[in-house]
């Protein structure tokens, strides 16, 4: 029987404040249960925290489950958008993914990254959505006037999700080995050329290139990847 979600989250995050940025987390508006009151003020941006919440949910902790599902919504939206789902369809994908999480709850292994597990499900649901909407579109009649009069979809959540994405990327970069982190900082964030990077770091251009390549591969598997 896993310990209650609040102790797991506090324990695993160790009071981390990454991603708090003064913004009240989405689910803070709907605290429910004793556990949720305690964990509601603990930002759960770190993947380990989400994995711990999922472990608690597997043990039947409803408050932890509610919280991890709420925290998953921005990640699912991001994955759906990356797969090319239009803003009007993103929430349909979110709904499908939440149901899929519920069905496949037993398959999550808390020793592995939660985000990789979630984004694999989200990616497939997004592709399913695009396939089915493609089939629907092929059966629908083109109506230019209605199209012109239809208001554009405004994606209000995109800014917040970009911010979260940047935080996740920053966290992932911080966990890279030193050489790889240096390559990302100099060549990626710093937008330096290989020559400039080599001069700044004292490493050869080849070493920088290899480090950057390895860093990108590591980041890809850390953020959305699979093995």
């Amino acid at each position: 029987m896993p310990p209650p979600a609040d102790s797991l989250v506090l324990g695993s995050l160790g009071g981390a404040t990454v991603g708090a940025a003064g913004k009240v987390p989405y689910n803070d508006r709907r605290p429910s249960g004793v556990g949720a009151v305690v964990i509601a003020h603990t930002p759960v941006d770190a993947d380990a925290g989400l994995a711990a919440l999922m472990a608690a949910a597997q043990g039947g902790d409803q408050a932890a489950y509610r919280r991890v599902l709420h925290e998953s919504i921005p990640l699912i939206r991001h994955a759906a958008r990356r797969a090319g789902v239009p803003p009007s369809g993103v929430d349909d994908v979110v709904q499908e993914v939440l149901l899929a999480i519920h069905r496949m709850l037993a398959t999550f292994d808390p020793s592995r990254p939660y985000e990789a597990w979630l984004s694999a499900i989200a990616r497939r649901r997004a592709i399913d959505f695009l396939r089915s909407s493609g089939r629907r579109a092929s059966r629908e009649v083109h109506e230019p006037v209605a199209y012109e009069n239809h208001a554009d979809d405004i994606d209000v959540a995109a800014g917040e999700e970009r911010r979260r994405e940047n935080i996740r990327l920053g966290e992932a970069v911080a966990t890279l080995p030193e050489g790889q982190r240096e390559a990302v900082q100099v060549l990626g964030y710093g937008e330096r050329s290989l020559e400039e990077g080599a001069a700044l770091t004292g490493r050869s251009k080849t070493a920088l290139k290899v480090n950057l390549h390895r860093a990108i591969r590591n980041l890809r598997s850390r953020l959305s990847g699979s093995d």
Binding site: A57, Q58, G59, G60, Q62, A63, Y65, R66, L69, L98, L99, H102, L105, A106
Partner: peptide
């Protein structure tokens, strides 16, 4: 979904 959650 949370209401229907059972330990797995």
């Amino acid at each position: 979904l949370a209401g229907r959650l059972v330990p797995v």
